[in-house]
Nucleic acid binder design. Sequence first.
DNA 1: CATGAAGCGGATGAGCTATCCGTTATCCTG
DNA 2: CAGGATAACGGATAGCTCATCCGCTTCATG
Lengths: 194, 194
Amino acid sequence: MTTTRIRKDAARNWQHIVDTARRFVDDGGSLRLNDVARAASIGVATVYRHFPTPEALLETIARPGLEELVVRADHAAADDAWEAFAGFLLAGIDAQLRDASIQPVFAATTHALPETTELVTRLTTATGHLLDRAQAAGVVNPDVTHADVVRLMCGVVFAATVHATPDERAPLTRRYLDVVLTGIRTAGPGRITA
Amino acid sequence: MTTTRIRKDAARNWQHIVDTARRFVDDGGSLRLNDVARAASIGVATVYRHFPTPEALLETIARPGLEELVVRADHAAADDAWEAFAGFLLAGIDAQLRDASIQPVFAATTHALPETTELVTRLTTATGHLLDRAQAAGVVNPDVTHADVVRLMCGVVFAATVHATPDERAPLTRRYLDVVLTGIRTAGPGRITA
DNA sequence: CATGAAGCGGATGAGCTATCCGTTATCCTG
DNA sequence: CAGGATAACGGATAGCTCATCCGCTTCATG
């Protein structure tokens, strides 16, 4: 088996591209590969070779954030069922707000990189466990599916993003997540008994 | 005062452009003015003269749907406070699902046409009345604002759109609206009956 | 029906994306 | 450390989309 080494100039450029692109994303701009190339003083072809599409680059940028979320979900397994579930939703939503690269990856139907699909699957699985546990404990409505959970997270983020300045978004997500949690909760504090 | 007449060829073209664009929107395509022009067998410049940007055309297309919603909201004034409020939310969400031109207009921060801004304002005002009445009747949490209602509607639509085929969307919106309504209601039945 | 103005259309320049291929840097072997 | 094989680089540019300009046509009016 021939081990294909990564040349260090390639590694250096890869990192430089990722770093530059990260700045673009943080500044709220769209990821145009030609622009990233120019900003990084790297040839366009080099950027395209490393990342065939803007999506591929975006997914690469989103990766650390997603990984952090998976870790968070696995850690939460020790907590009280409701706390673990609600806390993870909050973490996922906050991550999407804090890092603009995460939201599109979350909402996308297909991914450019197989690694991303794998990561998202792990995330979905972890979410599923937290939901199952919460439902088994009888604190979350049993007809909520785990696809629902992911969709509702996206919905909360979107709702808080519409017609709102960046500063307003964090408090809004808290309130809207609260609305959703109240809506799917079946017992415990915060439940409004009609 | 010189009455500027609209020439009938201009009116005919305007209508033809709108009709063609409507087909594009219904087919889920994006509105590229050059494409619309070609499909309508009308010169590009004519399309650009009538609608300087795709947004302007989209807003024109969305207009009838928005007007229908305003009428709906005004009619609802006779109903029970909760029914009127919940029913209107459902109508707004269904409209966004049924007509793809409405959602972007709803979510946009600024509008290309002043008429659209005016229409949206009327809609927001009507929504506000329904919310005020529901809150006065004590059936909706008093710290929900008008802006929240609009945002939550957008959030529900978005949540139901993410990772879902068109067929799945209608049932999903029902369920998610239900979650939201349960989350903001303070008394009465949690399920929408209409 | 003549005249002026409003409207039309498509050719086209500006701008962006993504590829091809000649050149350069890196790695490995002797 | 020299030399060759090859992986990687970079920018020129072909292809494509957008939106404007301006010569021509159609309509309304007296």
